[in-house]
Amino acid sequence: MASNAELTDNDITQLVIYAAQQTAKTWSRLSSKRKYPAYGDPQEEEWSETNADKWTCGFYPGMLWMVYHFTGDDQFLTWAERLQDGLTEVQHNRSTHDVGFMVFDSFGWAYRITGEKKYLPIIRTAAESLMTRYRPIVKRIRSWDNKGWNQQPGDDVTHSFLVIIDNLMNLNLLFWSAKQFTQPAWYEAAHAHALGTAANFLRPDGSTFHVVEFHDETGEVLERRTHQGYADDSCWSRGQAWAVYGFTESYRHTRDPELLRAATRAADYFIDRLPEDAVPYWDFNAPVEEGREQPRDTSAGAIAASGLLELSLYTGEKESRYYGQAQRILKSLASDTYLTRGDPKAKISSLLLYGTIGNPDK
């Protein structure tokens, strides 16, 4: 029986209906069927749109596939295929680790939902593209190509190899493709990257760094810092959510106990620092200023809740803790405080309010 902090079956049904309505409304508001919604101001009807070269471009096609899966409405299938067509060339993009986000959240869902084999060559090529960013000596997949990002005058950036915590989320493409296409080297690369992330991004208290710079010939850690968090030694909540979700997903594929330990450490830190309503602030360590509350990040909450639900399947005595905390987060996100339908002034066709894409007021 559902507790007061748990979504009921009727709650979930109503949320799916609302998600379908908002997803359809977004389709009607796109300026072009070769543009992809990224973020928006709640007081504006228009989305900030991107081309098929930004890390978020696969998300909305993925939403269309999911809504089709849950509703069976062929209109969403038609829209998903039409918008996804514009992402076909992304499979060849070797300039970003986010090819996993971009292709597996679109073509990956297309295959898993429909079973259509026409999507497989695109997924395979995307995995091949991602593998070009793997450096065996470092045992990591490079995230960013801009060597010496945030460098100081006089810094030697010749051997800079940048990795961000977000990169865990792109490993699913390699793990899945390794099995689908019988490519054990892809599995080994993804596994090595996940273990390296656990070893070099997790602090003793379970919090995470955002960016780690390695030496591209030795794998030595050169520096740890942040790009989207409050400070180099703070904990950006969406990065922590990537860790909860990403380590859990990597454990699913590998059953490596070290990755399960990493997932639980990241999860415990996240849970223990949630505010009363369970929706995290954008950074767990950003100072509280008098008369000004730090921005929330509902996207961090949603990502972590998804990871916690899966983590609860693997953790025995902690199952009720992780499942219960996931439900606590989701219940709050589904309330009128955070769902767009609860704000009569909200015009944007999103599902949630208060997503913090980045907070420049550090």
Rank of each mutant, 00 (worst) to 15 (best):
H159N: 14
I164K: 03
P280G: 06
W65Y: 08
N167D: 05
L259V: 10
S28P: 10
L259I: 11
G246Y: 00
E6V: 12
E290S: 14
L260W: 00
D53I: 12
I357R: 02
L120K: 08
A262Q: 01
P121W: 04
Y36S: 05
V288W: 09
R94T: 04
K345D: 15
I123L: 01
Q180S: 12
G342C: 06
E258Q: 10
M1F: 05
A178D: 11
Q327K: 09
L309N: 11
T226D: 01
Y68G: 07
V103F: 02
W55G: 01
A266Q: 03
K54A: 09
L64R: 05
G355F: 10
C57G: 10
K318M: 13
P42Q: 14
V279S: 01
E276S: 08
P42G: 13
F270N: 09
L330A: 12
D343V: 06
F70T: 10
T78D: 13
V244K: 04
D98I: 11
L87Q: 06
E45G: 12
P204C: 03
T96K: 10
K347P: 07
S207M: 13
Q22D: 05
M63P: 08
Y281S: 07
D166I: 02
Y338S: 00
I165N: 03
N200E: 04
A192F: 13
T197L: 11
R292H: 15
N359H: 06
R34Y: 09
H97P: 02
I271C: 06
Q240H: 08
A262S: 05
A231E: 13
T50Y: 03
Y60G: 12
W236G: 06
V288M: 13
N172Q: 03
Q180C: 10
L174A: 00
Y314W: 07
T88M: 04
H215F: 09
K139F: 04
G206D: 06
L351A: 09
T298K: 03
L339T: 11
N150C: 06
W27I: 15
Q294D: 08
F181K: 07
R94G: 06
D145S: 12
A305I: 03
H215V: 05
F76C: 03
Q183A: 15
W236T: 00
Y36N: 00
W242D: 01
P275Y: 03
P360E: 14
D166G: 00
